[in-house]
Design a protein around this nucleic acid. Structure first.
Length: 256
DNA sequence: CCCCAGGCACAGC
DNA sequence: GCTGTGCATGGG
């Protein structure tokens, strides 16, 4: 496949993006889709080796058409924080997964830790992959101990199945309109919406702000309020804000 | 017992 | 509009 320099599959797949919750680690550079059968690994020369029939999807998921070097160079110019982050995480790629899958993952993610999110999302898979909205409606989810998030998931599935709520339609909207539309879903606030926009729709101008990114923005840039954070990200990084966010998330979790 | 985790809904200003 | 509080669950 594509010869990509400085591509770290493990770093990418374990970086808290959607694949962290929907792929199983087989080896450090070898992953398998939960309930799906697709596999992906990185060879000796950093060449991507997707299993048969997954070639095209893997390109999309790992966003291989991004000029990552160029983007990282651009967003770190004159920015010491991102310079150090890029130096440390140069093998990190942004990912793009299925919108529904991403919605499920980040509905579950709220006020929760990554290990438990993984466990729960894994339990939300059937033989063919993650539960469809209909399967969510019909399943008994109580053994998964979702807590108050179970109702969010059920009601979201219901809106999609019975009330014509359409994720594909929302994906066609601009950032602001799409964000507002997603927030009509129960359990979807600004942060979860931004994760769906970035990791599920591929809108790279989205800037999800969780507790870690919030810490990063305060510590590195002296910015506190949600509104200021969004404005800063938009004016500083624009269409590449999502890339900056992923770097800041990793940096904050390590340092702060 | 406490606090925290890739937050949100809701109430009260 | 912004700010505080309760929330299921599990881990440290």
């Amino acid at each position: 496949m594509v010869a990509t320099t400085r591509f770290d599959l493990e770093l990418t797949m374990d970086s808290g993006q959607t694949p962290t919750f929907t792929w199983m680690k087989i080896g450090s550079q070898h992953y398998k889709k939960i309930g799906g059968g697709h596999e992906i690994r990185l060879g000796e020369n950093k060449e991507l080796q997707p299993s048969k029939g997954f070639e095209k999807q893997s390109r999309e998921m790992l966003r291989l058409d991004d000029d990552l070097q160029g983007i990282y160079k651009k967003i770190s110019r004159g920015n010491k924080v991102l310079q150090s982050a890029v130096a440390e995480y140069s093998g990190l790629r942004l990912t793009k997964s299925d919108a529904w899958e991403t919605t499920v993952c980040f509905l579950v993610s709220q006020n929760n830790n990554i290990a438990r999110i993984k466990k729960i999302v894994s339990g939300l898979h059937g033989k063919t992959g993650i539960f469809s909205p209909l399967e969510i409606l019909e399943a008994d989810l109580t053994p998964l101990k979702l807590g108050y998030r179970e109702e969010y998931l059920k009601k979201t599935a219901e809106l999609i199945c019975e009330n014509g709520f359409s994720l594909p339609k929302i994906s066609k909207l601009g950032l602001i309109d799409a964000r507002e539309a997603l927030m009509e879903l129960p359990g979807v606030g600004p942060k979860v919406a931004d994760c769906i926009l970035l990791y599920g729709f591929g809108k790279t101008n989205a800037f999800p702000t969780d507790v870690w990114v919030k810490k990063a923005m305060q510590e590195y840039y002296g910015i506190k309020s949600e509104k200021q954070i969004q404005e800063f990200a938009e004016s500083t990084w624009g269409e590449n804000a999502g890339f900056a966010q992923q770097l800041l998330f990793l940096k904050a979790r390590k340092e702060l």
